[in-house]
């Protein structure tokens, strides 16, 4: 059963991101000149235009900035995935990034609630960071869908 649209190839600019995710780490580009932390990955800093930047680990913790639950598949490849919830997560130490939110036991998420990242293996190359409520239950780790 298909639950995700798995990237067909790895964009070279994103390669360090996916390599880190495979090891269960969230890594983002930090600009060496102005320290801006950016997402999505890009060739140069959108703030000061300095090329490159260093990939650094960022704590996989944040809060729900907003969220939606797909009740109908709005992409043909997600027909088996619905219903599922996507949150926009404001990282505690970084920008906002989207990701699946699970572990809700049927309840609606609350904007502002703390979440922690878990890593879901989608293919040999792609491991996705996803989110669960940051309750006491469970420990971060790599899971299969």
């Amino acid at each position: 059963m298909k639950t995700h649209i798995v990237p067909a190839h790895i964009d070279p600019v994103w390669a360090p991101f996916w390599a880190a995710a495979k090891e269960g780490r969230l890594s983002l580009q930090h600009c060496g000149a102005c320290s801006y932390v950016r997402f999505p990955a890009s060739e140069r800093c959108p703030e000061c235009w300095t090329p490159g930047g260093s990939w650094r680990e960022v704590a996989p913790s944040g809060r729900v900035w907003s969220h939606t639950s797909y009740r109908r598949a709005l992409h043909p490849e997600l027909a088996d995935a619905v219903p599922y919830t996507v949150a926009m997560v404001q990282l505690d130490r970084g920008p906002r990034i989207p990701g699946r939110l699970t572990g809700l036991d049927g309840r609606t998420p609350v904007i502002g609630e703390p979440v922690r990242g878990v890593f879901t293996v989608l293919s040999p190359d792609i491991t996705m960071i996803e989110w669960v409520p940051a309750g006491p239950a469970g420990e971060p780790g790599v899971t299969s869908p």
Partner: peptide, 17 residues
Amino acid sequence: GGGAEFAAAAGLVHVAG
């Protein structure tokens, strides 16, 4: 957009999301 593949992998598809 720049993060299109990542957003799609997250399931954030279609303007409705």
